[in-house]
Each structure stands twice: as structure tokens, then as C-alpha cells.
């Protein structure tokens, strides 16, 4: 039993995380890093010897949920996982990332060549970052931001823009073995699901607010059963995502539960956000109604988590291993 976690309740992080996310509005990445580090949020999963809080994944879920709900313009999930997994192999880098003085991200798509050349992608906010973790044939390697070329890629996300990262063959600062990379990638799944739950909650709340206030045919839209049932279905989807995530959280060793939690989110979150645009009518198609920002983010999270590959992996577990 970890002493530092005795008496702590993950839910207690929800409020402070929501406040911190709200305080980050309008700040640039460096400012956000400093603000979140102040609250210990960047290093909450990292061990204490690199300045982290040494907490388990459960504690990060409400924080990622708040980040998703508040459309935080920062690669928080990547930062948390880098601080945690770099600690054993590059403690100084982990400490700087947990402390907010250095920024890092992870390229989720593609695999670099063994000599660290080639191009990888889906690295949130890689432009101007200090460190990028890239997948390699035997695990992963941490390369300096100055040694790579990050360019914007075609992506829906406007909040934490995804970058393509071209590698130059430079020496890495450290490497993760295959098992460490696999652990990191698996831990990312419930964290992504939490971010999608948060984003979906905001979308549904915005839709409810709109149909409650918008009047047509002499009555609010919410008086129409078609609208009530649409929103009820969104709520059903949202609580299903939450249920699968809660289950996965309670069973940290259960790979099926963990992957299903991410895939449940990847299935339902886009539908909730798309449905929220529909509920807004023409307003939903405007830039100023923020539902589209959440939809963009959700679609990026779905792609970063390689939902199609995981669906096939889940099928293989179910069918081929039976």
C-alpha cells in the first residue's frame, strides 16, 4: 500500500483540476505547463524522487476528464506519462517535465527506423517542444525537439494541434524497452477515455442549455419529444462510457476491460459531440459554438489511440484465443 495514497480520494482532484484548467484559458503552452505544475498535476503519476506525487492512474482520470471538459490546450496526457515512464531511465528529464520547466510530447502514429530516421505522426503540440518520444522497432526513444522537424499535419484538432515529426538520425536522450513502451501505451487508453468523457459531458451540457433556451413554434425546443429522446440517448451513451471506464479503473490488470473502456469512449464520444452539433441546429455549424472544438479533440484522441487497431486486437482476444 502506497503511503502517499492513503486517505486520498481520486474524486478530490476533480475540482482543483477544473479550477486549474479554467485558469489556463488564454495562456500559451509554457504558461500552461507552469500553472499545472504548480498544482502538481503534470507529475502526479511520476515517482516522488523526480518531484512527482507517485499516484496511480485512478488519480489522473478526473484530471484528464477536467482537461477534456475544459478543452485544455496542452498535451497533458503525454506529459503525465512521460514524467512517469522517463523517471527510471532519464530522471533529470522526467523531473523537468514534471516541474513544468521542459515540455514533451509523444508521437502516437508510426514507428521510427532503428537509426532514428524516418517520420512519425500524431504528436500533439510537437512544434517548439523540448522532447518527443517516438516509437522504435524495439520500444521507444526520446529525441530532443531541436533534433527533429515538426510540421502541422492534416488533423481535425485545433486545440492541441497534431504534428508530423521528421527525424534526423540524432542520438536519443534515452530509450524505453518494448515492455515499457507497451505499458505506457496501455496506460494512455483509460486516460484518453477520461478526456473523451469530459469532452462529451461538456457537449451534452451545451446541447441541453441550447434546447432549453432556444424557442421555435412558440415553445422551447426541449418541449419536443424528439429532442428529449435525442438528449436521453446522448446521456445513455455518456453513462455507458463512464461505466466501462469505472470498471476498467477498478480492474487495473484486466486488458479487455481497459481496451473496451477506450473503445467504448471512441465509439460513443464522437456521436455525442456530433449529436450536440445537430441539437444546436444552424448555430452548431458556427465557429463560436465550441462543440466543434470538442468534436475535433475527440476525433484526434480516437486516432491517437489507434481505435481500429485496438478493435481488431480485442476481436483477436475474443475469437482467436477462445
Amino acid at each position: 500500500m502506497d503511503i502517499t495514497q492513503g486517505g486520498l480520494d481520486p474524486a478530490e482532484f476533480a475540482d482543483s483540476a477544473a479550477r486549474a484548467v479554467a485558469a489556463c484559458a488564454g495562456l500559451h503552452a509554457a504558461g500552461i505547463a507552469a500553472r499545472l505544475a504548480e498544482d502538481g498535476l503534470l507529475g502526479m503519476l511520476a515517482p516522488e524522487d523526480v518531484g512527482g506525487l507517485g499516484l496511480d492512474l485512478r488519480f489522473a482520470l478526473p484530471v484528464l476528464q477536467a482537461a477534456g471538459a475544459g478543452d485544455l490546450a496542452f498535451p497533458l496526457l503525454e506529459t503525465m506519462l512521460l514524467a512517469r515512464h522517463l523517471a527510471p531511465v532519464a530522471p533529470a528529464v522526467a523531473e523537468a517535465i514534471a516541474g513544468g520547466s521542459a515540455r514533451g510530447t509523444i508521437a502516437w502514429a508510426g514507428t521510427a527506423r532503428a537509426d532514428l530516421t524516418g517520420t512519425v505522426g500524431r504528436a500533439p503540440m510537437a512544434e517548439g517542444t523540448d522532447w518527443v518520444l517516438v516509437r522504435t522497432p524495439d520500444g521507444a526513444a526520446l529525441v530532443a525537439g531541436g533534433d527533429v522537424t515538426a510540421t502541422a499535419m492534416i488533423s481535425l484538432d485545433e486545440t492541441a494541434a497534431e504534428h508530423r515529426v521528421a527525424l534526423s538520425g540524432a542520438n536519443p536522450a534515452c530509450r524505453l524497452d518494448a515492455a515499457a513502451w507497451e505499458a505506457l501505451a496501455e496506460e494512455a487508453l483509460p486516460l484518453r477515455a477520461a478526456a473523451m468523457v469530459g469532452a462529451s459531458e461538456t457537449c451534452l451540457a451545451l446541447a441541453v442549455e441550447h434546447v432549453t433556451n432556444r424557442r421555435q413554434f412558440g415553445k422551447p425546443l426541449v418541449a419536443n419529444q424528439a429532442m428529449r429522446h435525442l438528449l436521453a440517448r446522448q446521456k445513455l451513451a455518456l453513462e455507458g462510457m463512464r461505466g466501462a471506464l469505472t470498471r476498467a479503473t477498478a480492474r487495473p490488470g484486466d486488458a479487455v476491460a481497459r481496451r473496451a473502456a477506450f473503445l467504448a469512449a471512441a465509439t460513443h464520444a464522437p456521436l455525442i459531440a456530433e449529436g450536440a452539433i445537430q441539437a444546436h441546429g444552424g448555430m452548431g455549424f458556427t465557429w463560436e459554438v465550441p462543440v466543434h472544438r470538442h468534436l475535433r479533440r475527440i476525433r484526434a484522441l480516437e486516432a491517437q489511440g489507434e481505435a481500429p487497431r485496438l478493435r481488431e486486437a480485442l476481436a483477436a482476444t475474443l475469437i482467436d484465443a477462445n
Binding site: E239, G240, M241, R242, G243, A244, L245, T246, R247, A248, A250, V256, A257, A260, A261, L263, A264, T267, R311, E312, L314, A315, L318, I319
Partner: peptide, 27 residues
């Protein structure tokens, strides 16, 4: 059929649904 991508997708969707049913009742 068990090697067919479309059926594999629907079978894995079923498993996700089942995890949601479990995740709804346990809490």
C-alpha cells in the same frame, strides 16, 4: 466468418457492449 473483418468488428463491438453492461451494474 470468424476471419471476416466485418464480423470481427461486430463481435468486438458486442464485447464492448458487454463491458458496458458490467460497468453499469457493478457501481
Amino acid at each position: 466468418l470468424l476471419r471476416d473483418g466485418a464480423y470481427r468488428r461486430r463481435l468486438s463491438d458486442t464485447l464492448i457492449d458487454i463491458e458496458i453492461v458490467k460497468g453499469n451494474v457493478e457501481p
